[in-house]
């Protein structure tokens, strides 16, 4: 139990550092910042408290926002995605889950791909909309959402595959 909590805390810190020190430093194609910290929301265990995830999601977004100097878009998007996560889990995997986290799930690969992709896409759409908050910038929002989501998906899907617990 304690070990699990320490793991969660550690992954929180490591992901914040990776995001701010590496991915926010290199703007790919000149404008794209992949949001790799979503790994936290994706890899959070299914049986852990949803209440705490909402709080941690909020905290994660706020930390990134403060370190990046952006005005709240990460906070709102990450909070919303941590709130929506249980509904998405139910939607994509059904009611009876056979594993305790995405990292130990070895069946339903297609469902896993769609789950990760939709979390990333919803997060990006909300984040870009909050950041620009203006229909005039539709093309910018669209471009950023597509490119960021694709890059984030590639990074997160490969890291999920890499960190899978082998049976």
């Amino acid at each position: 139990m304690l070990q699990d909590n320490i793991k969660i805390l550690l992954s929180f810190i490591v992901l914040v550092l990776i995001q701010t020190l590496i991915f926010n430093q290199i703007a790919l194609f000149g404008f794209s910042y992949p949001t790799v910290y979503l790994f936290f929301v994706i890899s959070y265990r299914f049986d852990k408290s949803q209440f705490i995830l909402i709080f941690l999601g909020f905290l994660l977004g706020l930390t990134i926002d403060l370190l990046q100097g952006s005005s709240g878009s990460n906070t709102i998007a990450t909070l919303l995605i941590s709130f929506l996560r249980p509904f998405m889990i139910k939607f994509f995997f059904g009611n009876n889950l056979d594993s305790i986290s995405l990292l130990s799930m070895n069946s339903k690969t297609n469902n896993q791909i769609i789950f990760i992709a939709s979390i990333i896409l919803v997060h990006q759409v909300i984040m870009q909309c909050v950041a620009y908050l203006d229909f005039h910038h539709f093309m910018v929002i669209f471009r950023n959402t597509i490119v960021n989501s694709t890059l984030t998906f590639i990074i997160l899907f490969s890291s999920v595959t890499l960190f899978k617990n082998k049976n």
Binding site: F55, L67, G69, S71, G72
Partner: peptide, 28 residues
């Protein structure tokens, strides 16, 4: 928390937001 987030992202620069951001810029 969503309410807090909205307040944080609204453009009016209130005292707390400025303090928080200052903390953020020192850390980063």
């Amino acid at each position: 928390l969503f309410g807090i987030g909205i307040v944080f992202s609204s453009t009016g620069s209130n005292f707390h937001r400025t303090k928080l951001q200052k903390f953020g810029h020192v850390i980063s």
